[in-house]
Design a binder for these strands. Structure first.
Lengths: 231, 231
DNA sequence: CTAAGTTAGTTGACATTTATCACTAAGTGA
DNA sequence: TCACTTAGTGATAAATGTCAACTAACTTAG
């Protein structure tokens, strides 16, 4: 085993985030416009160097970046993957640890003031492959989308994109929009009940010109519940 | 965004591997005894610095370490997770990108000469939580075991631990031993047939003092096939 | 040569689970 | 009071899993 006699032999390490929310237009990702070289002026996933004097660990670094860009402190946060190669950054051998964050619709509306000026929500169109982003961020975003789409099939993931309180019908629409197909109401409710990640907000109903609907909230806003079978 | 004016501000980055095989005693992991500080003399997962002049990318670094320790070049290899914190290595802020590798029984027997002298196979007992390893490697190993055990439920993973050619009954035993429960022969064969990751080796049979069994091999020795439902 | 023993591989009956779709419930507004 | 809309539940058909019996193909003992 060799040692790093020379720090110049160390790779560069950054933490990058794929931050998702449900804008009215559907699933959207937060992008920032780069101010400096390389790729100055181009859009990229929010991210930054690890600050070894400030960040206790990788997840701490991810939370710091998230707070800087959105003002949100306690979202759903999950490590996606790590890429690293000699040529993904013109400045040298670099590593990117990528996290996925899901923001509730309430986080987005409440956090509008706190949001960084260089940041913007971009709706995902189709497979989301069409975007041109700095570094290898288009590929990273594609991976993140793949992970999200796959987890919708067998987890409570969509619950983290809604407002804090929502009805079962609203939850079902989010599943349907992320999956791109209709679900049966009865089967959907059976799955949700079994998975046991919701609790009713007692006495609170969504009222419209029809039968009122019971409102629910996630039992745990930070964690994902996996289903036994597909939704 | 800040820049690294000083390389001393960069974290240390290593690639570590949880390399598994099926020794006669059951699932086993390859450990190496550390020759240098820190944790000199203690057992650890095989790993090493990223060599920015030699490794093209992270997976390349993982393959290099794997070859150094086992002589094997083309195993099943999968990125598990990345940990990084200020205190996991006494030398400073450090990142470890952890890979899981699965070696076929043939790899192990053929590669015995090529295996590094400081390395040894250690059988996993129970949950594998009892081992005391350098750094946070005990926790990393536990994560790796969790990933493997969970993937056995819905993937072709056990096929990568057997010799290149094997019978369906042998495959079923490996599933059973990793899952810790018996499976129904008929249901098992239905799943395996549906998942379509095996091909028969025409004319080749396992002979014993009973009816001969058809031998099979993986259609693709590097990739995992996921099932629609649990095994 | 034959019968007993062993494991491979298949088949079918039955129980359980899951999908599909129709139904009842509870509100609004004309 | 009736038409309309969405919420929520139940009933039946289809699919799937479980269990165990069955046939097949070999070796070995007598």
């Amino acid at each position: 085993m060799t040692t790093y006699d020379n720090d110049a032999l160390k790779p560069i390490a950054t933490v990058d985030l794929a931050i998702f929310s449900l804008a009215p237009a559907g699933l959207s990702v937060l992008l920032v416009r780069r101010a400096n070289a390389p790729f100055s002026g181009e859009w990229a996933l929010p991210g930054g160097w690890i600050h070894i004097d400030e960040d206790a660990d990788l997840e701490g670094a991810a939370r710091r970046v998230l707070k800087e860009k959105t003002g949100v402190e306690t979202p759903y946060l999950e490590q996606l993957q790590t890429t690293g190669s000699a040529d993904r950054d013109p400045r040298g051998w670099s590593i990117s640890i990528v996290y996925i964050a899901l923001l509730s619709a309430d986080d987005v509306t409440e956090g509008q003031d706190a949001m960084a000026e260089d940041a913007a929500w971009r709706p995902i169109e189709g497979e989301g492959a069409g975007l041109s982003l700095a570094f290898d961020h288009a590929a990273l975003l594609k991976e993140a989308l793949g992970r999200i789409r796959s987890k919708v099939e067998y987890s409570s993931l969509p619950g983290h994109l809604l407002p804090v309180r929502f009805t079962l019908s609203e939850l079902q629409s989010v599943y349907e929009s992320l999956l791109g197909r209709k679900l049966d109401k009865s089967a959907f409710r059976k799955r949700v009940a079994e998975a046991d990640f919701l609790e009713p907000v007692e006495g609170e109903m969504r009222r419209a010109s029809n039968r009122p609907a019971q409102m629910f909230r996630l039992k745990d806003a930070q964690s994902l519940v996996l289903f036994d079978r597909r939704i």
